[in-house]
């Protein structure tokens, strides 16, 4: 339908305007966050939100960057997030394949175990996992936190990938089997390429989750030199002081990598969210 034709009906036009209004309303929190971040705290507190800012400045971004020590923490975030992401996707694709494509005793039980672990309020695992990590000598190392993220995300990833893998037509796999392919080759050379959209989608979600983690970082790491960017941002909220513009700027800065990943993988993301929905 052309734009002109679309707006030829008055009802449709009204509906469209309503939708437009709702959409703008939806974006207000973003807009206000950005507006807040370019003002100074003083200006904001004294003159209220609807005053015109006396000056526009990126000073609070600089402040958040400096005080939050972002240049020290950001590399750590990647050092933690990327291996966790790769490992968890790799391992869950293995277990998902087994659960999706084989009949064996305990299949249901294992699926149930994976889902169950994903639903536990994870905060409560904090001290047991801390004890475990310490006992393994992994306390205050990146490996300790990578191992935990990898393990904890396995439940969700296995569950989604299993659902996706079940939608792959069995004939393709049968054909390969008849040709004498080993199961590992089938998994790697046939199943994985077919599952790639799902993996990419999961990667987006998992990146966001692991990158935004803070709780585990403070429990499993004690050195500032190892901590991810979320820990740096948390120190912006002091014991006594709450500087809204700096906190908002820091929060927006920390969102940048996830937004980039999101934009980059957006196409898969929408598909990914639907994994459980249409294929379940």
């Amino acid at each position: 339908m052309t734009t002109k034709k679309f707006f030829s009906s008055p009802w449709r036009t009204i509906g469209y305007l309503v939708l437009l209004a709702i959409t703008i309303l939806w974006l207000v929190p973003f807009i206000q966050a950005i507006l807040t971040s370019v003002r100074t705290n003083d200006d904001l507190m004294r003159r209220g939100f609807f005053s015109l800012p006396t000056e526009i400045s990126l000073q609070s971004y600089a402040e958040a960057w400096r005080r939050g020590g972002l240049e020290y923490y950001l590399p750590n975030s990647f050092i933690i997030t990327i291996p966790s992401l790769v490992l968890t996707l790799f391992l869950s694709s293995l277990s998902a394949y087994a659960l999706a494509r084989f009949r064996f005793r305990g299949n249901r039980l294992l699926l149930f175990t994976y889902i169950g672990g994903m639903l536990l309020p994870f905060q409560v695992l904090m001290l047991p996992v801390f004890r475990l990590t310490d006992a393994l000598g992994l306390y205050d190392t990146h490996w300790g936190i990578i191992a935990f993220h990898t393990a904890f995300q396995l439940g969700f990833c296995t569950f989604l990938l299993r659902n996706y893998m079940r939608t792959v037509p069995g004939e393709i796999l049968e054909a390969a089997r008849i040709d004498g392919c080993s199961e590992f080759r089938i998994w790697w050379q046939i199943m994985m390429p077919l599952t790639l959209p799902a993996v990419a989608a999961l990667a987006t979600l998992e990146f966001t989750w692991i990158f935004n983690d803070y709780l585990w970082a403070i429990v499993l790491l004690r050195s500032d030199t190892l901590k991810p960017v979320t820990a740096g941002l948390a120190t912006l909220q002091g014991q006594y002081v709450m500087d809204w513009t700096v906190i908002t700027s820091g929060a927006l800065l920390a969102t940048v990598p996830t937004v980039l990943v999101f934009i980059f993988l957006q196409r898969y993301f929408i598909e990914g969210l639907t994994l459980g929905a249409t294929k379940g």
Binding site: L127, R222, S223, D224, T225, K227, T235, Q237, G238
Partner: peptide, 22 residues
């Protein structure tokens, strides 16, 4: 080797710190 932890979080993390082997 100096690390600064957000005040509220420090209070929660201290039990992990104190019982860690390092």
């Amino acid at each position: 080797v100096h690390s600064t932890v957000a005040h509220e979080d420090f209070k929660q993390a201290i039990r992990a710190y104190l019982t860690a082997s390092t």
